[in-house]
Write a protein that binds this DNA or RNA. Structure first.
Lengths: 118, 118
DNA sequence: CCTTGCGCTTCGATTATCGAAGCATCATAG
DNA sequence: CTATGATGCTTCGATAATCGAAGCGCAAGG
């Protein structure tokens, strides 16, 4: 059985507080979740195509994540596949500063020291 | 053995691309990571105190996370305990829009149906 | 009928996380 | 010196999350 998607106002994995941001962090903190949102922000996709785009993530997990994200009203299934809701798009936008930060982080960490591959 | 902290420029759990933002998402996507950053942004804390603040998270995981986050230069240990680096503080700030979004999300999801604890 | 693609489920194997116990160290007290 | 209690951190068996290949039911095409 499913524990269900985290929702604001309800205690959540890793936090008893039920504060919205904690619920969000819990939802986003699950594997593949942010990647799915990112991919769908680029273009809608059906189940199998989404799986392909996410480097062949496990279908069982994709199924679970779709359930959670649908329940959280971040995405929905149309004729042309899954796509973000307005709420979902807003979330992706809220994540933009993180992308900016990560670039600065990359610089700070310097050109890959040590055992960089490639 | 440790796989090591994700670092920008190096392929990462859930992404072969090595794009900085994916490395960041991988790092943040691990359990307790964001919570640890959040707690340290409120005030520095030693190992055991940090564990207490995070609702008694597993010490083994805390140890692992500290290793990862230190390696990523987001926190460091001083005499007064662990505390965020500048980079770490910047990350927490980059996460602020997420907090804003989560409040709107909470509204959209409607007044907690069922047994909400407010 | 046969094949292809679809959304999605099942289930055994692998990995991540948990959590109680313990180790080594330091400080204070007796 | 011993004892006690705090620290940072590790160990390891148990549980939960994730993986991934196989398959189901359905619809469309040949």
């Amino acid at each position: 059985m499913e524990a269900g998607a985290p929702r604001p106002g309800v205690p959540v994995r890793g936090s008893e507080s039920g504060r919205p941001v904690m619920a969000a962090l819990d939802l986003l903190g699950r594997r593949w979740t942010m990647r799915i949102l990112w991919e769908l922000s680029q273009a809608p996709a059906g189940f199998r195509e989404l799986q392909r785009r996410c480097e062949r993530m496990s279908s069982s997990v994709l199924s679970t994540r779709i359930e959670e994200l649908s329940g959280a009203r971040l995405l929905a299934l149309h004729d042309d596949g899954y796509h973000l809701t307005q709420l979902g798009q807003d979330l992706v936008e809220a994540l933009n500063p993180l992308a900016d930060w990560s670039r600065r982080w990359a610089e700070e960490m310097g050109p890959v020291t040590g055992e960089g591959r490639e």
